[in-house]
Write a protein that binds this DNA or RNA. Sequence first.
DNA 1: CAGTATCCGATGCGATACTG
DNA 2: CAGTATCGCATCGGATACTG
Lengths: 231, 231
Amino acid sequence: MAQTSYKQFCPVAMAAEVLCTRWTIVVLREMIAGSTRFNDLRRGVPRMSPALLSQRLKELEQAGVVERRKGEGGNLYEYHLTRSGRELEPIIQAFGVWGQRWIETELSLQNLSAPLLMWDMRRNIRAEPMPDRRSTVQFLFTGAPANQRKWWLLVTPGEGVELCSIDPGYDVDLYVGCDLKTMTAIWMGYETVRQALSDDRLKLTGDRKLAGNMQTWLGLSPFAKQKKLVA
Amino acid sequence: MAQTSYKQFCPVAMAAEVLCTRWTIVVLREMIAGSTRFNDLRRGVPRMSPALLSQRLKELEQAGVVERRKGEGGNLYEYHLTRSGRELEPIIQAFGVWGQRWIETELSLQNLSAPLLMWDMRRNIRAEPMPDRRSTVQFLFTGAPANQRKWWLLVTPGEGVELCSIDPGYDVDLYVGCDLKTMTAIWMGYETVRQALSDDRLKLTGDRKLAGNMQTWLGLSPFAKQKKLVA
DNA sequence: CAGTATCCGATGCGATACTG
DNA sequence: CAGTATCGCATCGGATACTG
């Protein structure tokens, strides 16, 4: 909480007062990942109330870590890391590396969330290995609640990736069916597309090429390559 | 607080659940600095209640970061970092570096504490530049509350440093008089012994040699050499 | 020395609704 | 879209006393 100061002059304690309040590290992670708009940040911390997110952003601004400014062209506000904030990047990164190495896999996999997974995956899709036209991939998470079962990723080379939770109406090139845990485990690097396929926990229907190189166009979590040191 | 989970599978969030509870980073700092016994840890986090310290240590043990075991010889318990905990060392270090670079000097200097300063200084005294016999240095912090005004450091080459807050009765080799803010600023690397002397904010009385190379035998904070990027 | 026990106060923050 | 407003509960944790 650090709502009340540690009263320690040590810079470690001073830094902890700024960084170790609830949600702060997770918000910074989302900013480092590239979100700049309030509602984009919200998607990265969906369980955080907007009031608290707003409060944290103000605190970080006050601490000189975040800058709030009008985006180019519009009158919409954007949140950006200052130089001080950018120097936190290796720290957040180190949190992730440490977490991936030392937090038990099953513990992480207790925190499944389809919106979060899709939001993260969207960011790391690689368009180059995909066909040279727009591709539509539909994900269906068996067992997920109705409003979180179906997702569409629209990948347009050169234009980026769009995520939809309601049917955009395009023809679907590839259907991906699995349960949320399987997809999350693949994304986290705990297992591979091939393993899940051979287990029949993952089903791919549609374009053969898209199905064949899914492991390639599906970017993984930035921490997926870290060696796990606990089960 | 993270008392209630973030519900995010992301390893950054998982790590933050373990590390970003109140006091946790500061406790880890104290362990990395070398304290292993409960009451030694307390001296590093004097404003933390023993109940909470105990609770945090158990949580860290549960998380695999800390190991509680009997010390060699005795039946006294010691707390040690596990391999996982030792991998946090660069993270804590990075907190300190970042804090030193980006937290305003005056903000840190609002958190003066004689017991903490002495406890930290004790750890970094360098005996080699001192005489080849036991040296007794008395610190007197003008303006500090009566029970925190006077401190003695007993430095015995080859045997380490002992800190006393009541007169150990030995002849004093060097008297150091200044206010707490001055001594803290020197320790943090914000200014030098020479500057404080020339300002008359620091007074040294006694052994000329000890007085002359104080800047050398007085080790500084591990973060003192970081370049400050804010005032 | 190494913690436990207890107790209560403050407040963080979660949920929801609402607004320019 | 980008936040504010409100409300109330839960719980965190600070202080102090105590114990084997």
